[in-house]
Design a protein around this nucleic acid. Structure first.
Lengths: 226, 226
DNA sequence: TCTAAAGTATGACAATTATCATATTTTAAT
DNA sequence: ATTAAAATATGATAATTGTCATACTTTAGA
């Protein structure tokens, strides 16, 4: 059982409002997990009964649509919390969380967290602001889905991936998504996604290095995304 | 200056957690407005510095997309609060709120509401749950935009409008949206929206009574929306 | 009441996107 | 190392959706 005080999640999430004693309480009741790439943290419809702290590894939050395709709603990176909405709403998870890389997470039971809501106003406020940020992002995302073309969305997503998750030494995007997952982010068929990647490649906006993607002309790509 | 105790907003919103004294404080500092159909309550980018209680009349929350079209993100009905996200995030409004009918609203300054967050845990929890509900809706909405066809979204929207805002005596939808606004809800071009309405009319799923819409075969419409 | 403007409707056409087929490459398991 | 399965890629084609033009209808204001 490791301490929570130096944890990356504590530094970047709502938990930064917690004091030493509160952190000790968490350290006592938390459980740590390793989750392999491709495995779920939790799945749509499941009762989570607590929150997950993402110590390492990125995961996707996705929802199965009635057409059988998986739409990726959000990517979650180390330092962030998972499952806040379900915990507050006291509802089953609305989304599935699946590891895109090997992950290290800690689970904190609902009962512990709920105590902090009553004791620690700054913590409540932090959680509220995080969820408000998610809501703003979701609204913007929704407008993009409704109003932008697939090509515009692809361009925007590639820029987002580079700016959020960075590049490898060879300049390719650090976060490895399959073409199917990339299609699931922009909301299109896998073939359409592949075709547009080829087109961007031909036009020298990006370069395809095997299945990895390198952004060549970020300015043009940004203009394309509007 | 009327009392807040019997107000519809108090009954249906997060404000139901407030006690008599708190309601009196609100009654003293609130300002009431009448907003005519078509006029904004607030606009994207504006600092709102408080929340609006919707006593009467429906309004649309929309966002201007880079292609110049207005995407409707949510409809807000009497009893609900407006501007919670901006107030909590301490940011300018992300969306414009425009009256679809003549409205009656009350404005409560940010400073008052923030006090309740510190004093009244139930109130905080209510606000948090409301925003969590909005986030869940937004995620679902986003998946629909990304994965469903325009026809499916139109069918779903018509059902939503009937179930949420009801029907007139002649069975037409009570809430009057222009074709452009309906297109803005489902995220399509106005002409496409009109064309699909005509098609649903021909297939006897709906009936067009002038510019009003009557749902004829709700079961088929629901199946169509999946 | 008349008229201009806005809203609704429809056709023609082009652009976008999905689907199905198939080939090629990569990955993982035996 | 070999092979089957999965992922990537591309072509052909159809379906969906957007755009532009135009006509008709309703609304609001002079």
């Amino acid at each position: 059982m490791s301490k929570c005080e130096q944890c990356i999640v504590r530094q970047f999430s709502s938990l930064k409002a917690l004091g030493k004693e509160e952190l000790l309480k968490i350290a006592e009741c938390k459980t740590s997990y390793t989750i392999k790439k491709g495995e779920p943290v939790f799945e749509e419809g499941e009762m989570t009964n607590g929150i997950y702290c993402v110590k390492d590894g990125v995961c996707k939050l996705s929802k199965l649509s009635s057409n059988g395709k998986d739409q990726i709603v959000k990517l979650v990176k180390p330092g962030e919390l998972l499952g806040q909405r379900s915990m507050i709403s006291e509802e089953p998870a609305n989304l599935s969380a699946v590891a895109l890389e090997d992950m290290e997470v800690c689970f904190i039971p609902r009962t512990e967290i709920m105590q902090f809501f009553n004791q620690n106003n700054q913590f409540s406020m932090n959680v509220m602001k995080t969820i408000c940020g998610d809501l703003k992002d979701a609204d913007e995302h929704m407008v993009n889905m409704a109003q932008k073309s697939v090509k515009e969305r692809l361009a925007g997503t590639l820029i987002y991936l580079e700016e959020t998750f960075g590049k490898e030494a060879d300049d390719t995007l650090r976060l490895q998504l399959s073409r199917e997952e990339l299609a699931g982010m922009i909301g299109t068929a896998t073939e359409s996604c592949i075709r547009l990647l080829s087109e961007l490649n031909k036009n020298n906006l990006i370069e395809l290095v095997g299945k990895r993607i390198k952004i060549i002309d970020k300015a043009k790509l940004r203009r394309l995304s509007e």
